[in-house]
Simulated scan of single mutants.
Amino acid sequence: MKESGKTVDLNCDFGEGYGAYTFGQDAELLQYVTSVNIACGFHAGDPHTMRRAVEQSLAAGAAIGAHPGLPDRLGFGRREMAITPEEAYDFTVYQIGALSAFVRAAGGRLQHVKPHGALYHMANSNSAIAEAIVRAAAATGDALTVYGQSGSLLLEAARREGLAVASEVFADRAYERDGSLMARNKPGALIADEEQAAAHAVAMVKNGYAITVDGERAPVQADTICLHGDGPHAVQFASRIRKALIKAGIRIEVLDHSK
């Protein structure tokens, strides 16, 4: 297959268990992804889980990012909370700092930050929350890349702050015509067929559009694709998507804005 000249990062959320509880298929997914977003102790994760996740990721050569969420373990950080921008800043600095310490202790470098769950979606549409998260990322001094949904206010805020950005898309989610994700509770919002998800991933990277639920095309920028690890067929999805991208001539590489 002729090279398309396109490259993409594959990321997954990682280390989202805590205590005696496990979540997702971390070890199996590491062979398919190039970057990971490690839970930092609020929505999931604990010191021991964070350390192990960092060590696993470094051993696999995956770039490590902080995955700060809302302080809501019972809701797994997926329920929106009425927080102030100041709280969003403090939550984010706290969580980045915790993970960064483990990464440095293991001899690695923290590459990026990607908000989790409800905090991610709040940052997509709330400019004050987006700006607070970006200020927190900038304040760490680690020159972090900000991962955010394609077309989001979070990416706009990061660009204004002078931070590197990675525009994220989702292979297993349907899109609205404006390029936003379809709400999970709507019929057809989740793509359960791995062939359809793989074709969707290729179209977004190679052609710059997402397929809407009604068959239309929504423009997106695909620097990184999120591979969810919590579905029953997550590993098969990841394998199929990676193979489809390579077959289409798309190179799968770690994003590196440090050079």
Rank of each mutant, 00 (worst) to 15 (best):
A139G: 07
L99M: 13
A166C: 09
R177I: 06
A128K: 13
A203Q: 06
V202Q: 13
A164R: 11
A201S: 14
A139K: 14
Q111R: 10
L154R: 04
E194F: 02
A128Q: 13
T140C: 13
Q111K: 03
A136R: 00
A130E: 03
R135A: 06
N124R: 05
H200R: 13
A101D: 06
A106P: 02
P115L: 06
P85D: 00
V146A: 11
G107N: 12
T145Q: 11
Y89G: 06
A98P: 00
K114H: 05
E176L: 13
Y147N: 10
A123H: 07
E156D: 12
S167K: 04
A118P: 05
A105V: 00
V113T: 04
M122G: 04
S125P: 00
S100M: 05
A132W: 10
A174I: 02
A132C: 04
A98T: 05
M182G: 01
S180Y: 02
A197Q: 15
A198L: 04
G141L: 08
H121V: 01
G107L: 09
I129V: 15
S100Y: 09
F91P: 09
A139R: 14
A137W: 03
L181W: 11
Y147L: 15
L155Y: 09
G107S: 10
A88E: 03
F91Y: 15
I191L: 13
L190M: 14
E87K: 14
A136N: 04
G141D: 02
Y147D: 07
E131F: 01
Y175H: 10
R159S: 14
P115H: 09
E194G: 01
A128C: 06
R173L: 08
A171Y: 10
Y175M: 08
L163K: 11
L155D: 08
H200P: 01
S180D: 10
I133P: 05
R160Q: 15
E195I: 07
S125K: 14
G108V: 12
R104M: 02
Q149L: 12
Y175G: 07
A198W: 09
D193G: 07
G148A: 05
S125Y: 06
V93C: 13
G97Q: 12
E86T: 10
R177W: 08
R184D: 08
H116K: 03
V146W: 07
G162F: 06
L154E: 09
I96P: 00
H116V: 03
T92G: 03
A118W: 04
E87W: 00
K186G: 00
S127A: 15
D193F: 12
A164T: 06
A118C: 03
I191F: 12
A128T: 01
K114Y: 06
T145S: 12
L110M: 07
G151D: 04
A198N: 02
A130T: 05
L163N: 12
A192M: 12
